[in-house]
């Protein structure tokens, strides 16, 4: 697979998701990151649970052997609380190819906006994902 097929896939989006910040899920997440599960504050990386990871994009899976995570950015626009309903759709925004120590790698950027059903933006996430 050449980088060209990945470049041609820029703009790809995955299915729209609708998720709810559920008590049992929030407890499990807080426990998994070492926080008090009885506290109902939503941690700053919680919306990562509403991402499809690794991104299920066939053009990416056909490049290289496996995934690495390059980085994550979260922009906070409105508070996220227990019980909130959130809609999102993963979007493939950009790709560049680099020569690394172990050969070529593709660095992919995915952007996801997490919005309430009325359209209010809550969190914008930018994920840098690597195939090599």
């Amino acid at each position: 697979m050449t980088i060209d097929k990945l470049r041609a896939a820029v703009g790809w989006t995955y299915r729209e998701r609708e998720d709810v910040v559920e008590r049992r899920h929030l407890r499990a997440f807080r426990h998994a990151i070492g926080e008090d599960p009885d506290d109902e504050t939503v941690p700053p990386t919680f919306t990562a649970c509403f991402l499809d990871e690794p991104p299920p994009m066939p053009e990416a899976e056909a490049y290289g052997l496996g995934w690495l995570n390059g980085g994550d950015r979260f922009e906070y626009h409105a508070p996220l609380r227990l019980g909130d309903v959130i809609r999102s759709r993963l979007r493939f925004q950009d790709v560049i190819e680099k020569d690394g120590k172990s050969g070529k790698m593709a660095i992919l950027t995915f952007v996801t906006e997490f919005r309430r059903p009325d359209g209010e933006l809550v969190v914008r996430h930018v994920g840098t994902r690597i195939r090599r």
């Binding site: 690495l68 995570n69 980085g71 950015r73 979260f74 906070y76």
Partner: peptide, 8 residues
């Protein structure tokens, strides 16, 4: 928090 980013 306004934004938070991490690079691996």
């Amino acid at each position: 928090l306004v934004w938070f980013e991490v690079s691996y």
